[in-house]
Structure formats: C-alpha cells, structure tokens
Design a protein around this nucleic acid. Structure first.
Length: 333
DNA sequence: CTCTAGCTTCCAATAATAGG
DNA sequence: CCTATTATTGGAAGCTAGAG
C-alpha cells in the first residue's frame, strides 16, 4: 500500500487526469476504503487545495482552482513537449520569456536523467526555422531525433506528393520544423544525396541496425540548407505572390498547396508556392477571398489574364463553343 | 419518499516512531 | 530490545443533501 503522502500526490494526479471522480472510484484507484479517502481529501484541503464535493446521486469529488498550482505529474512525452515549448516560447518576449526560462530550469531540475538525455537529444536535433502547428506526433519527432543523435540508419516507407510509396534507407541528420511542417533532413543511401522528408509522409520508420559516420551538409548550416531545399521543390512552376490579408486569414488555404507564408507589414502576406501546372496555381489563387499581386513568374500573370478572360466569357455567355478534343485530367494542386 | 453519495463522530486495531 | 506514544486505517451508525 502507498504511504499517506504518496497517496496524496497520486490523488492529485488522478484529479489532473480526470476532473470529476466519485468517492468509490477514487478509493478503488488508491486501493483504500472510502473512509480513508475522505481523510485524504481532508488533508488536501488542509494543505490549501480546494476539493469540491457534491453529495447526492450525481455527487463526487472535483479539484477546484486553488491558491497555487498543484504538483503536476507529467508523462514522459508530456514532459518533453512542455520542455520544448518552454525553450521555444513562440512570440514571447520580456516577462513571459523570463518566466518560461525559470519554469524550464525548474522542470529540467526535476527531470529524471533518462528524460533529460532524451530532451537533449530532441533539442539538439530539432532546428526551428519558423514556428507553427503540425499534425506530426511528438513520438515520431522524438524517435527520429534520437536516431539523429545516435546516428542510427533508418529504413522507412515514404509517400511522395503523388501518393506513391517508396522504400527508403536514410542516415538521419536533423529534424527540422519549418512553416507548418516537420521535416527529416537525411542522407538518402540509395540515391546518394541529401533529401528532406516530410514527417507526416514517413511510414513506419525503423532502425536498420547500422550506425553511420555523419556527413557534412552542402550548405553548412541546417536552417540555411532547409530554406534552400524547400525552395527547390520537385514542382514545375514556382510562384511568389503577395496577398492583401494577414497570415492567419490564409491559414485555411495553405493546406491546398505547399506555400510558405511570410508577413510583409501592412497586413499582407508573401507566399512562395509551387505546383505542377499554371492552371493549378491559377485555381488556387482564384479561390482566395483576397486581392493579391503576382511577383513572379511572368508566365503566371499572363496565364491569369487568359483564365480571367475565359471566366469573363463564361459569365457573360459569350463563349466560342467548341467541343473539347479530349477529357483532360484536373490539374494537380 | 426513496435512493444514492458524501460527512461526521466514535471506537478499535495496527503500524511506525521515539525514548529509555 | 521493550514500552509508550502517535499516526494511520477501517468499520459502524446516523446525518445531510440532491435527484427522481
């Protein structure tokens, strides 16, 4: 049986995992009787924690907002996520940043050595280029970052932008967060070249069992290399447009193309994007509910004029009606 | 009123700790 | 090591309160 003190900590962690509990459930979890539970609840209250209790059919216990933060019990993944977040306070400055640093120092002090090693490995292998959200699981980031640190060669499936799955063997170098995505920068063994792999397209990565000697990056700095690598994408047409809307307003549309948004004062956003056809770019731009200017390429400006003319004729019913020669495929965006 | 769930009080058993 | 003290735990009984 746990000691009374250990039980109080366990009780607090149960309250953090689930807000409301019945006395019977709590007692069962703590392997004590309800009588002892009531005494434990009393102890928490005497320590300053607000524990609300409700009697009756829908009754139970619930941890209220107290005067101080209860001691948090974090799972391994949660602790690493919090530490990463504190070390990278997006948009924070001054007091908030200072508070983040103090909290991070406390957290690291309490971290068991195995977690601290893991955090170091994630931190040294993750290079932030720009901050944003990503659907990638922390577990995947953590696993790949550890492979970078331990120089473990990896084998994984990779789904390219045509959704074709290929088997890859790679020597992971760094995990990079840029724009809305996470990437693994790695040496592709079969192709004998550097490649950037989107983490959300990597399928079932596993170590081959081989260890490798790290290579030098062609552009030296990882962040600089990633900026370069992401600009030189496999798309046929690259465009740069300035949209008269803030970055947040464009978020819903950025998932359509691989655009990298960048705020340019006066509430506008510059987007570097690419697609396999000018039609695809035109369709995407046409769907934006904001005005925009095309900075490059000139062919896109000409193509937009062509599309605009076609749309105008369709709108006025003055089309030169000719049957299509063949049913073309929809442009791939 | 009945049922359910938490609260309070009293009492006894057991375990842990302090002191000689 | 033994004894006394203190803390912890659990059981029982009766109470309060909310919901149907």
């Amino acid at each position: 049986m746990l000691s009374a003190t250990a039980r109080l900590i366990r009780l607090l962690s149960l309250f953090q995992a689930q807000r409301s509990w019945t006395g019977a459930d709590l007692a069962a979890r703590l392997e004590i009787t309800e009588r002892t539970l009531r005494r434990d609840v009393d102890r928490l209250r005497s320590l300053g924690y607000t524990v609300d209790s409700t009697s009756g059919v829908a009754g139970g216990y619930r941890l209220g907002a107290g005067t101080a933060m209860p001691p948090l019990l974090l799972e391994d993944e949660e602790a690493i996520a919090v530490a990463l977040g504190l070390g990278n306070p997006v948009g924070a400055s001054g007091d908030i940043e200072n508070a983040s640093m103090r909290a991070l120092a406390k957290l690291e002090q309490l971290m068991p050595p195995r977690l601290r090693r893991r955090l170091d490995s994630v931190r040294s292998s993750v290079v932030p280029v720009m901050h944003d959200k990503s659907p990638v699981r922390l577990k995947a980031v953590s696993f790949l970052a550890e492979a970078c640190t331990d120089r473990l060669e990896l084998r994984f499936g990779y789904r390219d932008h045509h959704d074709a799955l290929t088997e890859r063997t790679a020597q992971p170098h760094r995990v990079v967060q840029t724009g809305r995505r996470w990437y693994l920068l790695a040496w592709d063994v079969a192709r004998e070249d550097w490649r950037t792999f989107r983490l959300d397209r990597i399928v079932e990565p596993e170590p081959t069992g081989e260890r490798f000697t790290p290579r030098r990056l062609p552009h030296g700095d990882v962040a600089a290399y990633m900026e370069h690598a992401l600009k030189v994408s496999p798309y046929l047409h690259h465009a740069q447009v300035v949209v008269h809307a803030p970055v947040e307003a464009l978020e819903p549309y950025l998932g359509w193309v691989g655009g990298t948004p960048q705020a340019v004062g006066d509430g506008s956003t510059r987007i570097a994007t690419a697609a396999n056809s000018l039609d695809a770019l035109a369709v995407w731009l046409g769907c934006l509910p904001h005005d925009f200017e095309v900075e490059s390429p000139l062919e896109l400006v000409a193509h937009l004029a062509l599309v605009a003319g076609r749309l105008a004729r369709a709108a006025t019913g003055k089309t030169s009606h000719r049957p299509p020669k063949a049913v073309g495929r929809l442009p791939r965006i």
